[in-house]
């Protein structure tokens, strides 16, 4: 079947099985490897992408569920080479060890700040808690989201 959606501002069409995961379609058919496989069951959110602005776990989202929608992957977040505020904050805070979880972390934080530009510490933790980092770099990731949210504590 053919599925059409907008990915990072461009309309794309892919020919694939309806039950195929959005993650594998993005990575294998469109070469967008920024979204990572971490668990295949929506438990670690390394695969997070934005669908119509909302963070979804693309590993458990079938391609058909994304048809006709606007998808943003980490590759599409910077505008004309200018990093998003959250990306910049991750660099400034050194919020990465191996970095594998970072794309999912950033997109989750972007969605949080879209709906709540100045979240409290508790709101940040609530929003981010589904994202795993096995290097356990949580303190710096929190600092980065705090910074992007305008709280340089």
């Amino acid at each position: 079947m053919t599925f059409r959606f907008t990915v990072n501002g461009k309309s794309r069409a892919i020919e694939t099985e309806a039950e195929r995961s959005l993650l594998e379609a993005l990575r294998e058919d469109l070469g967008l490897t920024g979204a990572k496989y971490g668990c295949g069951e929506g438990q670690c959110r390394a695969c997070t992408v934005l669908v119509d602005g909302k963070p979804v776990t693309s590993c458990v989202t079938p391609v058909r569920a994304a048809a006709g929608k606007k998808i943003t992957t980490i590759e599409g977040l910077a505008a004309n080479g200018k990093l998003h505020l959250v990306q910049q904050a991750f660099i400034e805070e050194g919020a990465m060890q191996c970095g594998y979880c970072v794309p999912g972390m950033i997109l989750t934080a972007v969605a949080l700040l879209e709906s709540n530009p100045h979240p409290s510490e508790a709101q940040i933790i609530d929003a981010m808690n589904g994202n795993l980092c096995r290097c356990c770099g949580y303190p710096r990731i929190l600092a980065a989201v705090r910074r992007a949210g305008g709280n340089h504590a």
Partner: peptide, 21 residues
């Protein structure tokens, strides 16, 4: 000092082993 390749990490440009195509 922080990782020098932070930009590659935050933009998804870095290719981890599972990303090599």
């Amino acid at each position: 000092r922080n990782r020098a390749d932070g930009r590659e990490i935050v933009t998804g440009a870095h290719r981890f082993p599972s990303d090599i195509q």
